[in-house]
Design a binder for these strands. Sequence first.
DNA 1: CTTTCTGTGTAATATTATCTAACATCTATT
DNA 2: AATAGATGTTAGATAATATTACACAGAAAG
Lengths: 136, 136
Amino acid sequence: MSDDLRRNMALFPIGIVMKLTDLTARQIRYYEQNDLIQPARTEGKQRLFSFNDVDRLLEIKALIEKGLNIAGIKQVLQMQEPAMEQTEISTTSEEKRKDMSDKELHQLLRQQIMYRDASRHGEGALIRGELSRFFH
Amino acid sequence: MSDDLRRNMALFPIGIVMKLTDLTARQIRYYEQNDLIQPARTEGKQRLFSFNDVDRLLEIKALIEKGLNIAGIKQVLQMQEPAMEQTEISTTSEEKRKDMSDKELHQLLRQQIMYRDASRHGEGALIRGELSRFFH
DNA sequence: CTTTCTGTGTAATATTATCTAACATCTATT
DNA sequence: AATAGATGTTAGATAATATTACACAGAAAG
């Protein structure tokens, strides 16, 4: 079983994720609604989160605290998934990317990141992989 | 945060543990009832399992498949937790241990393990830590 | 061979956790 | 002041889990 697959196993219900990330259920669902995460579902439609999902939520939280809005976060996260196979869903974001040159994109990012200093919420650095170090 | 603490964090509901271990809820609860595991509980009294709990359940399953009964499994697991601080609960098992010399204990184990060959259920080796290698 | 015990299946009922949807609130922007 | 974005809150519905009791098959003991 590949490492990637392991980290993508749907394991946690939302209650656990709330504690792990210190986000509310409302926030988590809102981020899903805005396509920042796509947690798996049980047969009964309850969300199940993977390690990768939790990592991503921690990133989202850090970016929120930096003052980024949903659109900005979407751009940042999208940049971190460079090589991705074509799917119906990813095609949409592909189109959006084509509408914007790299220069424009970077400009947007710089603008949003500088926009609000957010009174320094400690360790603003991206923490992708934080959770996987948290456990082992 | 210590490694030990991380592996003891209560994370999984019983439904996930069922899939991870391929045990039924009935089995898991029965093993708890017989003090083979002590999963944490939510405020609402629902069980929450840690990595260590799941590892232990995998061990229990392997021993069950070898033909051990609950009492035998309890002895084996107890031997694997050699140094443990005194608590009200552990005191009980301490007393039991005092009633039995090492020789007697080993004899019991050999007897039970040899008792039934269980038609070779592949890789009978103990798999403590199996889950932690499964993820990372 | 019958009886007893052990480990597990199953069903009923109660409670907890999560879901969706709607409306409220707060802050920043226009 | 008005609008929009992000989150809080509430209500009602559904899913997941808890507990308990009874059933049952196979092993153990007689």
